[in-house]
Amino acid sequence: MSYGQRTRLTGILTYADPAPADDGPGAPCVVLLNAGIVHKVGPGRLNVELARRIAAEGFDVFRFDFAGVGDSPARTDGQDLSAGVLSDVRETLDHLERTLGHQRFIVMGLCSGADNGMRAAELDERIVGVALFDPTIDRTRRWFWEALKAKCRSADYLRSILTLRNPALRRRLGLSVPALESGDGEGEQPELYQVTYADRPRITRCLQSLVDRKVHLFVTFTGSWDFIYNYETQFLDVYPGISFADRLDLSFRPDADHAFLDAGHRRRLIDDLTTWCGAIP
């Protein structure tokens, strides 16, 4: 599909198979968002596999490229990236409502796609479910304890402490710390990674508004995110004031990688997602 009033966006619809019955409200339409600047196939073709498997459970699934990503041209309407992403989601839902009659949507995204999905759901009441894979999250006091426990299981770490070579320990003792060798640009983050919510109060308000609207949440964290998330219930500890009740499906997959490149982990994620989608009334 090529659509959009402000910028021509490009997306691919995978029709529900079997097709839903004509009577009744029908299943929500699932919309997959870009992970960073990886185009709409997703890392390791994750979004293609997600779309086909979820469509086989009776959901229309749409994956598209934000303006300036993949096969959608850069926007020319002057909106900044943060606002532009939200416009793109709204235009996409409008288009799917106009052409297919969908009025309820489930939005899914990995990494920045998760954060953008959360932001979009806050603003658009047609979104009844949000699936977040490795969204932005704050560390907790227990995170540091869990990280320390994990480190102490490492012989290299214990050796660095005992021989005073550990950089953190050296800083604390006022000793010199060897400079790191210059990097190769791996830390460079394109702008699209920087348009999301970054602070806990803002994310809290967003999540609270979703809970108030009875939006269903699927939140999962992988082992690749262990530098900020390292135990099953950390998400609940970060947002203790929010009563998610039975609308939150939270999981921690310590053995999985960020992009679910391993076939087994990917299969389990998709199985869990299809089950979760099927339970949304």
């Binding site: 960073g36 600047i37 460079e188």
Partner: peptide, 10 residues
């Protein structure tokens, strides 16, 4: 243009 980085395409 084709070599991998963290999430690809960067």
């Amino acid at each position: 243009a084709w070599s991998n980085t963290a999430l690809g395409g960067m």
